[in-house]
Design a protein around this nucleic acid. Structure first.
Length: 424
RNA sequence: GGGGGGAUUCCAGAGCGGUCAAAUGGGGCAGACUGUAAAUCUGUUGGCUAAGCCUUCGGAGGUUCGAAUCCUCCUCCCCCCA
């Protein structure tokens, strides 16, 4: 199965420029996707692009990951972009390094002619003078052409700065640059990038007469209309410092059935046969969530490793399984901390706990488990607060009896919100 | 330049002198159900030293025993006529 066919059955093609498939059949082709290095970690939204590169590489082509040191500073008008902050070179270098480390988990940067590479457009944009840019790039695309892009049109009535308007030129130039220096003939990205990408192919055509192609994948959506990859806590990051492996695992486990059928094709490398049989099996017994588990495992292992995956499972079992106060109290401290890594932590003085703290003060004042004492009272009345997995009422006094291993108290607000209170 | 309408608690949107911490819907949070789901149903949704008190209805003053509600000025939005 060739690259395009592979993406097609996985539902990863939104738009493809005529001739792209032929180009890929003809020779080993270099292709790139752009990533904004706005943080020192990727989040799962980036994963789609990365999977495109992965499939590309597996099909024998050469993937480039372009980190947009330059473009990241400008802000793409097609995003819901506010004006972006300029990143310092130092931060940028740090982010690029961190991102590269994460990419290593997905792409092969070492072996073969088609080993992956990282390029940074800041390297070729930083010395480019404004006049030089106007003469070399600006000359070749008309404003009329640029204005016709959806990303620009949509902003015309609310207004967009010249800087943002120019974004597509900068991105187009990247493509041209990679085309001439690295013989890169394909740019991929999310469907919102189509306009920017075709500006690039157009620039290449006009400037060098060469051919270049475009391929975009659909925007990942959720069946309920929500935004993919976001939770109340924010983005799902690949870096364990930002999203613990447990939360990462939970994110995938909690996807709806409908979404998971699409996601597993996009985010896992299971073969078509494997996926189809899993989907069929899952539909037989949806409550076992076989599909979610398979996807969550596949991707958690790839991102965080087998060991972290196992801890995540263990944690899930304690939190959602038959875990009781007894099992909790038996848990060694290091396991407890690993399980609850990433859950919000509060510190309360041990002396106060030994004296005894009224539950309402404990929730609303000593910690921010509830936002106010009123909320604490309400929650207690609703029976939504548990301590060490046991529901508690308004008259409880938190004391040293509640300490696990002599320094922790596990508090739940509702079913899914866990807090760890540390006595010190 | 002239005329008119509006700004309300997270959002939309009622209220137009006391009974208003403010209807209703959405959203949020929680409970039941369940698959750690969806749908549904229920409760809840300013704060506190809690049958009481305090701070909220664009801003500043004023009238009144009492104001989100009336008056004056200011700021910002919208509409109509030139």
């Amino acid at each position: 199965m060739n690259f395009v066919e592979e993406l097609r059955w996985r539902g990863m093609i939104h738009d493809i420029m005529p001739g792209t498939e032929e180009q890929l059949q003809e020779e080993m082709t270099t292709a790139y996707v752009g990533i904004d290095p706005t943080a020192d970690s990727l989040h799962i939204g980036h994963l789609v692009s990365i999977m495109m590169l992965k499939h590309l590489q597996m099909a024998g082509h050469k993937p480039l990951a372009l980190v947009g040191g330059a473009t990241g500073m400008i802000g793409d008008p097609s995003g819901k972009s506010e004006e972006r902050n300029l990143l310092s070179e130092e931060v940028l270098r740090h982010n690029v390094e961190a991102i590269k480390k994460q990419l290593l988990k997905f792409l092969d940067f070492e072996h073969g002619e088609n080993k992956a590479e990282i390029v940074n457009n800041y390297d070729w944009m930083k010395e480019f003078s404004f006049l030089g840019f106007l003469r070399e790039v600006g000359k070749h695309l008309t404003v009329n052409y640029m204005m016709a892009k959806d990303s620009v049109k949509k902003r015309l009535d609310t207004g967009l700065s010249f800087t943002e308007f120019s974004y597509q030129l900068v991105q187009a130039y990247d493509y041209l640059h990679l085309n001439t220096t690295k013989n890169c003939k394909l740019q991929m990205g999310g469907s919102d990038q189509w306009g920017n990408i075709t500006s690039g192919t157009e620039l290449i055509r006009r400037k060098t007469g060469g051919e270049a192609f475009a391929l975009t994948c659909p925007l990942i959506t959720k069946a309920d209309g929500g935004k993919f990859g976001k939770t109340e806590q924010g983005n799902i990051w690949l870096d364990a410092r930002y999203t613990s492996p447990y939360h990462f695992y939970q994110f995938w486990l909690n996807c709806s059935d409908e979404d998971t059928e699409r996601y597993i094709k996009i985010f896992s490398l299971f073969s078509r046969e494997e996926i189809e049989s899993m989907i069929a099996e899952h539909r037989q017994a949806p409550h076992t969530r076989l599909l979610q588990k398979a996807l969550a495992k596949d991707i958690t292992v790839r991102v965080h490793g087998e060991e972290e995956y196992n801890t995540a499972i263990e944690a899930s079992e304690i939190l959602f399984g038959k875990g009781t106060t007894e099992t909790l109290k038996k848990l060694p401290e290091n396991v407890l901390l690993a399980v609850f890594e990433g859950v919000p932590m509060f510190e309360v003085s041990k002396a106060e706990i030994e004296t005894g703290i009224n539950i309402i003060d404990f929730l609303g004042e000593k910690t921010s488990i509830t936002q106010s004492k009123s909320e604490a009272r309400r929650m207690l009345k609703e029976g939504s607060i548990s301590i060490n997995k046991e529901k508690v009422s308004e008259d409880l006094v938190v004391s040293s009896d509640h300490l696990i291993n002599n320094h922790h108290i596990l508090v739940q607000r509702g079913k899914k919100n866990y807090f760890l209170v540390q006595a010190r």
